[in-house]
């Protein structure tokens, strides 16, 4: 988390940020930060950089994504990173698991998790590459949609779309599964 913040923010800004977060608290901070155009632009820029790094490291050819509504008025974002090297796929799955386990334990992440009501994350290998599924509220999907769409559109454009495309295909229950 620290590395991630250091990556997205200059040191002076990180120090100021620390002071500010201490003053206002984590959750209100996230709420306010996401309203800031500058913050979102910065986040998007860093997202693009992160994507470029990942693409190079794991030989990712491209990505695509799908947003669908699931039970409880929530949305599921499904991103597929298209890659062919089986070794790289395994590496990505393993590393992302460790990174997520660590990151999610921070209070800062918890604020994010709570704000966007993220309750389920899946990551697995497919024939095409690696698929990451995240279930969160509509706001979360809109945020990622603007980031993902923005990257594809060549960056520079910032914003959130007013209303997410509704693609209700029914909820995905888990009943009937017998475990692995």
């Amino acid at each position: 988390m620290k590395k991630f913040l250091e990556m997205i923010l200059p040191k002076e800004a990180l120090n100021k940020l620390s002071e500010y977060i201490k003053k206002v608290g984590f959750a209100p901070f996230i709420e306010m930060a996401m309203k800031s155009q500058q913050f979102r632009q910065l986040l998007k820029k860093k997202f693009e950089e992160l994507w470029n790094d990942l693409r190079e490291k794991y030989e990712i050819e491209d990505y695509d994504y799908l947003i669908e509504e699931v039970d409880g008025g929530k949305c599921k974002l499904e991103i597929t990173l298209l890659m062919s090297d089986e070794g790289k796929k395994d590496e990505f799955v393993e590393r992302s698991k460790n990174a997520l386990q660590k990151t999610l334990k921070y209070e800062l992440s918890q604020s994010f998790v709570q704000k966007y009501q993220i309750d389920d994350i899946k990551c697995y290998k497919t024939d095409e590459g690696v698929c990451v599924e995240v279930v969160g509220n509509r706001e979360f999907c809109r945020l990622l949609e603007s980031l993902l769409g923005g990257v594809k559109y060549g960056g520079g454009k910032e914003g959130e779309i007013g209303e997410s495309e509704s693609e209700e295909v029914g909820g995905e229950g888990e009943g009937g599964e017998e475990g692995v």
């Binding site: 698991k97 334990k105 921070y106 209070e107 992440s109 389920d120 994350i121 697995y124």
Partner: peptide
């Protein structure tokens, strides 16, 4: 944070339930 993160592993992937 004092939280319990459950990670279920399966062949070729994992799932984190929060």
């Amino acid at each position: 944070a004092d939280i319990d993160i459950k990670v279920e592993e399966f062949e070729g992937g994992y799932r984190i339930k929060l």
